[in-house]
Design a protein around this nucleic acid. Structure first.
Length: 272
DNA sequence: AAAGCACCCTGTACGC
DNA sequence: TGCGTACAGGGTGCTT
């Protein structure tokens, strides 16, 4: 399930491989993946345009085209963005194929089709709801503390709320809260200044470390980078998916809880 | 404002 | 072996 760290890894790959090349073709083989706009729109906007930059906002990958338009991709639960030679066989569930000059495709493969791609303008109106990006546009600890103060919701829910902060999902919210030694059900407004600083530090620290290790590829997750390689941050997970196992800090049992149909993991002893 | 839930979807794991 | 079912969850939208 690609979150900020995984999308950032993909972004870096796209930047290294495709920026500067010309989009020569755009083929949609999965209509649901481009459901936001008419299927023909992607090709109309992208074909004949050069890719000038690869960006990211939260979990959204941004392909900036010559002339200002942007192709946006969200991987959803199971989406992969893969580099492949243009003449190679397509994997099952290949939804969109962008053919670039030089003979390489950028292919969007997504079995569960929760992800999507669409073309839009440089102002990105579809992404206007997103909160700050903790890596691309971080805020200070005092600013974070102020924003937490007005919110009575649980910390985990707030970290996963894309309108509050963009890019954090189920895995990294759990890992961040463990690093900050804060319980997932703590009301955001209950944090002391010291706790808010811990949370601020944990957000930056966990996400930076996860990017460094090219994201998390869990057995259940389809996440691969542009080259089809797994990440390795899953080996650093302290709590996520580790119910019943020992907390790396205090050795007590990691607990699993459910909030609104989603599971969360935390150490009841370390995280208060 | 916050929380819960159904929905979209398919691969995987599990029980019988 | 094979079939049916539960489960996984990001985002959206609706209800409580």
């Amino acid at each position: 399930m690609p979150e900020l760290a995984e999308v950032e890894t993909i972004r870096r790959g796209v930047e290294a491989v495709f920026v500067g090349r010309l989009v020569e073709s755009a083929e949609v083989t999965g209509a649901r993946s481009v459901r936001r706009h008419p299927p023909s729109r992607l090709a109309e906007v992208a074909v004949g345009r050069r890719l000038v930059a690869a960006g990211r906002r939260g979990k959204y990958l941004l392909l900036h085209l010559e002339g200002g338009d942007v192709v946006v991709a969200h991987m959803g639960m199971s989406g992969q963005m893969l580099r492949a030679p243009a003449d190679s066989l397509r994997l099952p569930h290949t939804q969109v194929t962008l053919g670039f000059s030089g003979g390489d495709d950028l292919r969007f493969v997504d079995p569960r089709t929760f992800g999507q791609m669409f073309a839009t303008t440089a102002e990105l109106p579809e992404l206007a709801h997103l909160g700050f990006d903790p890596i691309a546009e971080p805020i200070g600890a005092a600013d974070l503390a102020r924003r937490l103060a007005g919110r009575r919701t649980r910390l985990k829910a707030l970290l996963m709320d894309q309108r509050f902060v963009a890019g954090i999902g189920n895995i990294y919210s759990d890992e961040i809260l463990f690093a900050a030694r804060l319980g997932p059900a703590r009301p955001a407004s209950s944090l002391t200044p010291a706790e808010a600083r811990r949370l601020h530090r944990a957000i930056g620290g966990v996400l930076s470390a996860a990017i460094e290790l090219r994201g998390s590829s869990l057995p259940d997750s389809r996440y691969r980078d542009l080259y089809g390689e797994t990440g390795s941050y899953q080996y650093r997970h302290a709590v996520y998916g580790r119910a019943g196992r020992a907390c790396p800090r205090c050795r007590s049992e990691i607990a699993r809880v459910r909030y609104g149909g989603r599971s969360g993991f935390f150490c009841p002893r370390c995280q208060t």
